[in-house]
Design a protein around this nucleic acid. Structure first.
Lengths: 394, 394
DNA sequence: CTGAAAGCGCTAACAG
DNA sequence: CTGTTAGCGCTTTCAG
């Protein structure tokens, strides 16, 4: 019965408080809001707090300390196996922590320690298999190291990329892995984050004129080899399908392509590089035009994954036989490359490895004091896997 | 010169402190650790702190307040456009905040407000296109709502899934989106999280006997339609390739398959369902066995994406023509379905939509007090897209 | 070896 | 309208 009286007492107190609160808070509403939902909610909250009912939250260090007649500090130390705690105490603490499934509040400790054990991964998109595999690589390292992974997609939009990056100045993450958007042509937003002291590792789509760690594949050589392969298989005129020209991967691949042509004493013109977009219909039209013209290519290099499908589609529509009329190579990790008809020769990207390496390098930078992250520029080779789409026909 | 003296003074003080500290901290090392790396590091840190040098961190509310001759409280209110702050003050605060690129420390406010504006996405894997698209859907909603997305992969491992989930009891995330692993056959780990007050939304691979929101596709109907399609195209014996039997998606798809056979007055035996694994070589062998036996099927349904490739590969190896000798349907979102030869009839999964819906429902549950999340069971229809791999041959 | 105390940056109640 | 105050839960000195 006493408990009931107590409750009633609190109730009346709280109703008074609530009215004042509500009058302040929701000015517009008149005073007769006495039984509004907000009031009920407020009183409820208040009651719980007054009666010290912890609704949602897990065990805290304080509670453990109280139950063990220890101080919070000692419990904290015991939990991290500090040498200044007796093993006896440690055991007691650990036992109780296990019993209550104690999990430290990450926000409290991040606040205090000024680091969050969290990294951000900023990607342009995650539709194709390249970035999926990269995420896989990143996540596997992060999980092993006890880090958490926040994912952000820029959707190839520079404005969004800027917004995403600018939010990191708050210290939400200890480090950033980024593959820049197609639209990204300058790196002020990244420099700002760097000067705020947050390490950045570029992967795949790196940005050359900035001092930061860069993990990528050998784009130049990959394209060079691909072009060589087509030439060796008898191609006389090769077209290179490319995307956003300002991307490092694009320009290097184009360079590799042109160098290979040059080395084979074939004049390379800009007309051999077809700039594609994100609009697939548009791309199909472009490729169709390319393959319908009089001076059409007998070899095509699709420099990113998403350009493979249009090439196959259009050549089918036009009745061109691969590899007899047209030889094709794609930069891709697609599992289905081997079951395409004909199976597709690929410059297989080390996607998982790139992700894994990027994450490893970042963690190394975070954990080892005397490791200059920005000096890390690692190139992981891609692999030319020849399949039926480039089979020779002479 | 004075600054130099001051520095020297601090240096000596700190060296003394450092020695004591080090002796305590690294017991094993003898006292002659005077010039160890740890010492240098310690002194450095200490110096920075003493001289009040804030190395990494951004602007704080306190700093803004000081510069504006306001209290921290008022600045905080001004920043969130509280009605109890004059518009004049607000403007000043906002201006200064913009000038200094003030970004609130998320850990401080999460700690205080007991919510993090962060959700977790727990996935079995992210190699194929289904989960990629789902992530895309989730992220797009999250970004719009100002939420952050943590990604965790269980790698189809129940133990890991448990570990991942158990870490969420600490309040790291406000809500969880999960697609369970193949090995998950009981849901205690999820119930624990739920009783800790953290809302959970299942997507795609849901778990039936638990009270939580569930977003999935019409697995039963999809399989039913696929089977019907094969029967209509003249198949007499259909095999259903499946994975881990305890998954909801698997059992429902198998049921749809069997119901369709049953409705067509064809006896369905368990032998028609081929249980595949994660080991691709193993799967190829199984499928090969299947297609080599005397009583081999003339129709195959690959109930998950990764089983499509083996079917095409093996049938090619065995010289079986699709669709003449064997008709194939796959549950998949693969872009390349249309460029396979023959192009693949698919039960196209609404992957993006599932992700988007799951996230939307979760956010609704988080933001609207009177919305019973657990009552949400939404089914988003898949779509049978017929292509060449099931073309009729009679 | 343990305890007390201060404070990370922010918010919300409460007082003026 | 603004200021003061008291924490959120944890870590880290520093004192005993």
């Amino acid at each position: 019965m006493e408990a009931y009286t107590k409750l009633l007492f609190f109730w009346s107190i709280n109703v008074i408080h609530a009215r004042i609160y509500l009058r302040n808070r929701f000015r517009k509403t008149p005073e007769n809001c006495l039984f509004s939902l907000q009031l009920v909610h407020f009183v409820q909250q208040r009651l719980f707090r007054t009666l010290n009912i912890n609704l949602l939250n897990g065990t805290t260090i304080k509670q453990l300390a109280k139950e063990l007649n220890l101080s919070a500090g000692s419990v904290s130390k015991a939990l991290k196996d500090s040498h200044e705690i007796s093993s006896e105490t440690k055991q007691k603490v650990l036992a109780l922590a296990a019993k209550y499934h104690y999990t430290p509040n990450p926000y409290a400790s991040s606040l205090r320690k000024r680091k969050s054990k969290t990294i951000a991964v900023v990607l342009p998109e995650v539709a194709d298999s390249f970035f999926s595999l990269a995420i896989n690589g990143i996540e596997s390292v992060a999980q092993a190291k006890g880090y958490h992974v926040l994912i952000y997609l820029s959707h190839e939009d520079f404005k969004r990329e800027e917004q995403i990056l600018s939010a990191f100045r708050s210290g939400r993450v200890d480090g950033i892995l980024i593959s820049v958007s197609e639209e990204t042509s300058q790196a002020d937003h990244i420099k700002e984050v760097l000067t705020a002291g947050i390490p950045v590792v570029f992967f795949d789509r790196i940005f050359d004129d900035i001092e930061a760690a860069k993990i990528s594949t050998n784009d130049f050589e990959g394209a060079y080899e691909a072009t060589r392969c087509l030439l060796e298989r008898g191609c006389k005129k090769i077209s290179f399908l490319s995307i956003a020209a300002n991307l490092s991967i694009t320009s290097k691949r184009v360079q590799g392509f042109q160098k290979a042509l040059h080395d084979a004493h074939i004049g390379a013109t800009d007309a051999d590089v077809l700039l594609c977009s994100n609009d697939m219909e548009q791309n199909c039209r472009l490729i169709r035009q390319l393959l319908e013209q009089r001076d059409k290519p007998d070899g095509i290099i699709a420099s990113v994954e998403k350009l493979v499908t249009p090439v196959y589609l259009v050549s089918k529509q036009l009745g061109m036989a691969i590899p007899d009329d047209l030889k094709v190579i794609g930069f891709t990790n697609l599992h289905s490359a081997s079951i395409l008809e004909p199976s597709l020769t690929t410059v297989t990207q080390p996607a998982f490895e790139i992700g894994k390496t990027a994450a490893s390098v970042l963690f190394k930078g975070l954990e080892e004091k005397h490791f200059t992250l920005s000096a890390q520029t690692i190139t992981i080779p891609s692999m030319l896997v020849e399949r039926a789409s480039t089979r020779g026909n002479q």
